[in-house]
Computed example of a mutant assay.
Amino acid sequence: MAELEESDYALLAQFRHTLRQFLVFSEDKAAGFGLTPQQHQALLAIRAAPEGGATIGYVAERLILKPHSASGLVDRLETQGWLMRAPSPQDRRQALLILTDRAREALEGLSATHREEIRRLRPMLTDLLMRLG
């Protein structure tokens, strides 16, 4: 392993700071819709899931959660009107997660805003990654 130089620490600190800026931006935007960051991430994962693939297990995998934690998260989203459950046609024991119109509209606005912020941060992140490489 190569020894780190002082400039490496500065680059790593700047990289983490830039990532944190994006996370704070994301948290604020999600809160504007009444969502926690984890709820926003779950809705986005469900929206991006392959056809017929949005299950509690899928949410657990994508958010790196234990299945019981993902189940609680999905329960809260369902109670708040962000999603519905439907029996899977392949396995009736499994529920598919379906976003409500409200969730789709919120995600459309959130995702467009996030894409613009990523585009704004891309030059800084690219530069930092190149210098860390």
Rank of each mutant, 00 (worst) to 15 (best):
R62G: 00
L35D: 02
T79Q: 15
P123A: 06
P87L: 09
L4H: 11
L63W: 03
L99W: 01
A48T: 02
L65C: 01
I46C: 01
L43Q: 01
L128G: 10
T113L: 12
R85E: 15
V74Y: 02
Q41E: 12
R47K: 01
A31L: 15
E61G: 05
L132A: 06
E6Q: 11
A103G: 00
A30I: 02
R119M: 11
L23A: 13
G109L: 07
R115A: 11
D101F: 00
D91W: 09
A42H: 02
L107H: 00
S71W: 07
R20G: 14
L35T: 09
K29C: 04
L65R: 01
Q90F: 13
T113Q: 10
E27N: 04
T55G: 04
S111C: 05
I56A: 04
A106I: 00
T36H: 05
D127I: 03
P87T: 09
F22K: 07
L35G: 05
S69T: 03
L63M: 03
R131I: 08
S26L: 06
E78Q: 15
R92G: 10
G52F: 04
M1F: 10
T79L: 13
R76F: 05
P89I: 07
D91K: 14
P50V: 07
I64H: 06
F33R: 08
A70T: 07
A86S: 15
Q90A: 14
P123R: 05
F15N: 09
G109S: 07
V24H: 13
T126F: 10
D28W: 05
V59F: 01
Q39C: 05
A106M: 00
S88A: 11
K66M: 05
